[in-house]
């Protein structure tokens, strides 16, 4: 397995691309947004009643469903007193005419790992409280399903993951007669999450030297650089440059944009989640 430069099958016409790039130079975006403006965000939780927690997020026309399933498992040897988090992403063949059927490719793997790192390093989920005894812990599976790709899958997936985790209830762990730990699905407690530590990612696109948040699909196909910065409270908890290059001053500008975008995202999250 190796990483291959993707075939440019997701066309955007040269006219559109030039229009996007020319407008950005004067601070205007193809869909009329300001450089620091997100598309409309809606977050709904409890959308799948077979999951232990779920959410659906729309970011403009981008749609992601997240489902959480809780299981029992062994802790990792280097963290014996913590529960286990596993994030997986599927970019469904539904999501665009250019997505193929198959196991997660490098884009889906990267998407899952970037979301995973934000949650892991933010303290949003209290993994210590997911340990049951020295050999048994809760395993939290977060599956991200991209239904429609209109750009910025990372931010939509991150919101879907945190909303689904927030809505998750844990089946209580009980010992049966022979002392084996089992999950009682009829007896549930809330997932230990702390909304004040919620990790919020901001994807930032670059065209020439202009930076802007939340690129849509047409913009993504016209970018010369892209970086994702995730912030929790006042800390930067995850960064991933995914395209092109950035200078030192562009990086500091991107970090400042992420800090101010985080404030607005947090308002949207707090409005939708209890």
């Amino acid at each position: 397995m190796a990483s291959v430069s993707p075939y440019a099958k997701r066309f955007v016409s040269e006219l559109t691309r030039q229009q996007i790039r020319r407008l950005i130079a004067s601070g205007v975006r193809i869909d009329g947004r300001a450089l620091d403006q997100y598309r409309d965000i809606t977050i709904r939780t409890g959308v799948v009643n077979t999951a232990d927690g779920s959410a659906e997020v729309s970011l403009g026309r981008t749609r992601v469903i997240s489902g959480v399933k809780i299981g029992l498992g062994q802790p990792f040897p280097d963290a014996p007193d913590e529960g286990v988090l596993i994030v997986n992403a599927e970019i469904l063949p539904h999501s665009s005419p250019y997505t193929e059927i198959g196991p997660p490719d490098e884009a889906a793997i990267e998407l899952a790992r970037v979301v995973d790192r934000g949650i892991r390093h933010s303290g949003f989920v209290d993994f210590k409280r997911l340990a049951i005894d020295p050999t048994k812990v809760y395993v939290v599976w977060v599956d991200l399903y991209v239904l429609n790709d209109d750009g910025n899958l990372v931010d939509a997936s991150n919101l879907a993951a945190i909303a689904a985790l927030r809505s998750t209830t844990l089946p209580v762990a009980v010992k049966d007669e022979s002392g084996v730990i089992k999950l009682d699905k009829n007896n549930r407690v809330a997932m230990p999450t702390d909304l004040s530590k919620v990790p919020l990612s901001t994807s930032i696109g670059k065209i020439d030297s202009a930076l802007f948040v939340d690129p849509n699909l047409e913009e993504e196909l016209s970018l010369s650089g892209k970086i994702v910065i995730t912030i929790s409270q006042s800390s930067i908890v995850s960064v991933q440059k995914t395209m092109g290059f950035f200078t030192e001053s562009e990086l500091m500008q991107a970090v400042d944009m992420a800090y101010s975008a985080k404030q607005k995202l947090q308002e949207a999250v707090l409005k939708s989640l209890v």
């Binding site: 790192r117 892991r120 390093h121 933010s122 970086i227 929790s232 006042s234 800390s235 930067i236 908890v237 995850s238 960064v239 991933q240 440059k241 092109g244 290059f245 950035f246 200078t247 030192e248 990086l251 500091m252 970090v255 400042d256 800090y259």
Partner: peptide, 20 residues
């Protein structure tokens, strides 16, 4: 030019700037 940049952990803005 920075062409690879990843980060995890918990960094303040000042620590990030110093790291660069």
């Amino acid at each position: 030019r920075f062409v690879l940049l990843q980060l995890d952990g918990a960094w303040t803005r000042e620590q990030f700037a110093e790291a660069l």
